[in-house]
Design a protein around this nucleic acid. Sequence first.
DNA 1: AATGCAGTTAGAATCATTCTAATTCTAAAT
DNA 2: ATTTAGAATTAGAATGATTCTAACTGCATT
Lengths: 150, 150
Amino acid sequence: MPPSPSRAPAKPSGLDCRLAVLGSDVRLTPHRREVFDVLAGSTDHPTAYEILDRVKSRSPHISLATVYNCLDHLTSAGLIKLVHLERGQSRYCANLHEHVHFHCETCGKVIDAHPNADFDPTKFWNLPKGTRITRTDLAIHGTCSGCAAK
Amino acid sequence: MPPSPSRAPAKPSGLDCRLAVLGSDVRLTPHRREVFDVLAGSTDHPTAYEILDRVKSRSPHISLATVYNCLDHLTSAGLIKLVHLERGQSRYCANLHEHVHFHCETCGKVIDAHPNADFDPTKFWNLPKGTRITRTDLAIHGTCSGCAAK
DNA sequence: AATGCAGTTAGAATCATTCTAATTCTAAAT
DNA sequence: ATTTAGAATTAGAATGATTCTAACTGCATT
């Protein structure tokens, strides 16, 4: 309904830009773009509701259902990642570099940690023969340096 | 306040047995024991609701709220583990050996995989100095050998 | 026996997410 | 330019998972 205000210049229309990643692709509609941009500009792993809040400043009429919709599309296209650290709300992350999530059990903060060496899960764990791995999610729980200092 | 810690050997009733693990302890009430036993006898990472179903054969009147209650107590005592692999229901696991979870995205099955080498997360990821780790959760997603064969 | 408190319960309440049906928009075909 | 089919979007309802509430039970200490 909100006919996007400022459409990108070159394209026939803002809708027709696609981004191919990992073999998949998504139509980057204005809302999907905004959701993606908001997430890409966040380092705090926001929830769907927090993303709604942030997108609202640009698209005041966007609905929560649309945010979920956009997030689902972006996730299945591999443009963002879904993170489950606790019960309750899912969190999202646009950092596509290989990384793991550190979750502070005291303040709830989630920090990305990047690898300093090659990590191959099959080196450490015995998976049944024939298993195919598509992705690994490592969550490290504990106390962040700030909370530990107190 | 669970009465006196100095309650020695002779157990006046089934309620009074405790199990100390990792510094924490729980009163193993009959329900908590049953919930624990059901989980310990399962290898499929059941949800709270599935656990309710299984406990019902022994305690037909147990309620879902009590199951959640027991699971929370057992979890915070370190007797069982909470597993988050997907949106939706949490799953529980009584395997306390170091292991990771393989999640088949096709059939939904969750398989425990055990280590064949020492795994030290700090060897691979740069965490801010001062971070304290209490536990790590590694989820490996993919296709299990059965599904991959098809 | 009286008291106090943890454990238990059913059901209500809440929270997160998904679904539904109506509507709007886009892209391709006329 | 118009039509058309299908995708996107919406508000609100519905569902599902979990937590909360208030009442009740039963053990354990007084």
